[in-house]
Design a protein around this nucleic acid. Structure first.
Lengths: 190, 190
DNA sequence: GTCTATAATTTGATAGAC
DNA sequence: GTCTATCAAATTATAGAC
């Protein structure tokens, strides 16, 4: 019954969630053990008990985020839902992040910084994008040129998140998502 | 003859260019005065002579980058070039950055981090996006829904840069740019 | 598990000589 | 303009008591 996802004690999960939020707001370098400790009500040295090194903490945050997002998206099943409905799920995740929480995607942030990150963290970011692109490509498998279309769709959502947050115009997510869906629909889907 | 762009002494320009590269690689927090000093062959205290505060240095880097990019794009003149040709100029800039230098756009990086940046820097990032979106919207002014299309186009390029750099697949820039141009052409351009 | 205490390093920034 | 010297603060990380 157990998945391959690591199961952490409650306090470690609090730390992972605090770290996720802080990374998504300011990037990996902007997160400190002291801040995380304050977030979860312990001292910095105690955070090191749960995650001895920052690079390992970062990688754990990404893997947990991957699992959560893929679980929210669900399994791709084109006999149960259309291409458009699958894509809508993805748009909904990112729209909610921007509009409710003012946050961009964790992978987007770490991808931007990836050239300067510890190897364990940039490798986790790469894994995240690969898993997500696989999901999108499968969801678009009825479309012509599904692989490129998947990159286009994910790139558009990631880049638009940055614009929406920077310009403080969360409605951009909806406008571009609508545009994107029209593109997909007109692009060879049965 | 003078533009409103500040003109800096030669060493200050060296610093600005070193800072631009470092920010684009690792983000604003990843840049230190000591590193910049080493880049340009002076000491950290001397960098403070040119740019007393890091936030002001950051804003200056962004404004200089804005001016450079807009100058490269040139004035929009739809009597001299088509919509597609104008858009191609923009794609070329970003493709070159990713494929030759392995770097994403400065605005993309700072936009991602914008929630945690000093106000002067996040404001500069916002200015950058507004100027660039104005240029794109003007270039697309013959298209239906030019404003949304401009956000879509810029978002797609920015997000794809992140994917291309993180996945170490620079060719993604070309593939998605082609896709994007087809979208624009089919989207109501005269 | 959490704490105090501390080490070793790095950071942004200033003062003042040259 | 650049330097040396220095500062105060913050950072990741460890040792050891409880």
């Amino acid at each position: 019954m157990k998945e391959d996802a690591a199961d952490y004690p409650a306090k470690a999960i609090e730390i992972l969630e605090a770290a996720e939020i802080r990374i998504r707001r300011g990037g990996f370098e902007a997160v400190s053990y002291r801040d995380l400790a304050a977030d979860v009500g312990i001292k910095a040295a105690s955070v090191h008990y749960h995650f001895p090194q920052k690079a390992l903490l970062g990688a754990a945050v990404v893997d947990r985020y991957s699992d959560k997002l893929l679980a929210t998206l669900g399994r791709v099943d084109l006999t149960q839902a259309t291409v458009e409905e699958h894509l809508q799920r993805l748009c909904n995740c990112y729209r909610a992040a921007v509009q409710n929480d003012g946050m961009i995607c964790l992978g987007c942030m770490l991808g931007a910084e990836s050239q300067d990150l510890p190897d364990a963290v940039s490798a986790a970011a790469r894994r995240f994008f690969k898993r997500l692109l696989d999901w999108i490509e499968l969801a678009l498998s009825d479309c012509a040129d599904a692989a490129t279309l998947a990159v286009h769709a994910l790139g558009t959502l990631q880049g638009t998140m940055i614009l929406a947050v920077t310009l403080k115009r969360p409605e951009l997510m909806d406008e571009v998502a609508d545009h994107l869906k029209r593109l997909i629909s007109g692009s060879g889907a049965a």
